[in-house]
Design a protein around this nucleic acid. Structure first.
Lengths: 217, 217
DNA sequence: GTCTATGTATAAAG
DNA sequence: CTTTATACATAGAC
């Protein structure tokens, strides 16, 4: 007689459920209804979270579901980390399909990231720099500064524009530390931020999605 | 007499520990050694993971510890999501101090992100666009294209350059799906990727850090 | 989306 | 760094 409960054994050492408040329960307060004695056919409704291998999920549907759930989780974690430590965090995601999801202080960070990096990239001298200059381990060469110029003001403007979306949306009523705006809140029309993004609980709930390409890939 | 075990009550609805395998245990198999009857002074070595409020951690040390742990966790999650769903993910972090941590396909994503966005931003007409144009809900206006030009080639070159670092480092021996290179592998000199980043297990273990500013902030 | 049961991340402490 | 105990995320099923 196959015991249904033995089906999935655990290999963790934590054994979470074996010490429920230790000796708080009085001995005569049994664990649960003994019911019959061993097993009834369907004692559990689900098998709970199953361990999965970290490899590409081939099944389309399942992959989508996982993507949704985990992206959500990732953004939540990001928000928490940001709030807890005061760090500026940006997360950008390009799904295999045509969607982009972004979270956090993306523009500020990208701006910083791009604005500072070029300074380190000595020897940018055109569009064939990657061809000739990069043959040698360029990062070992002395750091010099590179003229930024147009890119500078372009980035600034872009950054401001973007910031404004954020502010606007925030002004419409939510959040405080982390702003979460769609990558391109363009013609999605109907879209607007969930009005109840007041606290971290649902900070990541109404995650905004925007179509990007025209359904390629 | 204050019961030590009552100290922290739970407010979750999951009640994880109250149904240990349901009726698997035979009734006479008590929960644990009853020991005395109520409490011994130190029955547990730690109080386990404590619930914390998601608000800025003021205590410097504690904040740093939390930052390390959670950043690590965040990167791991990112890696998993990337592998599982095949999505391209980038995470950038600016700690309140002077460090940057990045993870994933940062350059590719930033490139894509910046390259496409301006196209959607109709009416970019200078650096005061954010002042005048943005007064109206610009995202409702029809989409037009904006000349990119210099930025285009600059980004391309930058992107290529960066890509090369990645390739070079990867060629030095690691990883496959997610590349993790320092934001600026400049004069940190001694740095190189941990050679045992072969699988997801330690993909995020030797996370690379680079000093950025000169200890401001 | 919701629910359940269980895998996993992580706060404290060593 | 490691260990412990517990909070939280999430796979599977609806």
């Amino acid at each position: 007689m196959k015991d249904l409960f033995m089906e999935g054994e655990r290999e963790t050492s934590s054994m979470t459920c074996l010490t429920p408040k230790d000796s708080v329960q009085s001995p005569n307060m049994l664990v649960r209804q003994p019911k019959k004695e061993t097993t009834t056919q369907i004692p559990k409704t689900t098998r709970g979270r199953q361990k999965i291998e970290i490899k590409k999920i081939e099944e389309e549907t399942k992959r989508q579901v996982t993507f949704s759930k985990r992206r959500r989780g990732l953004f939540k974690k990001s928000a928490e980390l940001s709030v807890l430590t005061g760090a500026k965090i940006a997360v950008i995601t390009f799904s295999k399909c045509d969607r982009i999801y972004r979270f956090g202080h993306v523009d500020a960070l990208i701006d910083k990231y791009l604005r500072k990096s070029p300074v380190k990239l000595e020897g940018y001298s055109g569009d064939n720099a990657a061809d000739e200059e990069s043959r040698r381990p360029w990062w070992e060469r002395p750091v010099e500064s590179v003229p930024e110029e147009e890119i500078e003001e372009y980035m600034a403007a872009l950054s401001m524009l973007r910031e404004n979306i954020g502010k606007k949306i925030v002004a419409m009523g939510n959040d405080r530390t982390v702003d979460m705006v769609p990558a391109w809140p363009i013609n999605v029309m109907g879209w607007k931020p969930t009005m109840d993004m007041q606290n971290l609980e649902n900070l990541t709930d109404g995650v905004n999605r925007c179509r990007v390409g025209q359904n390629g890939d």
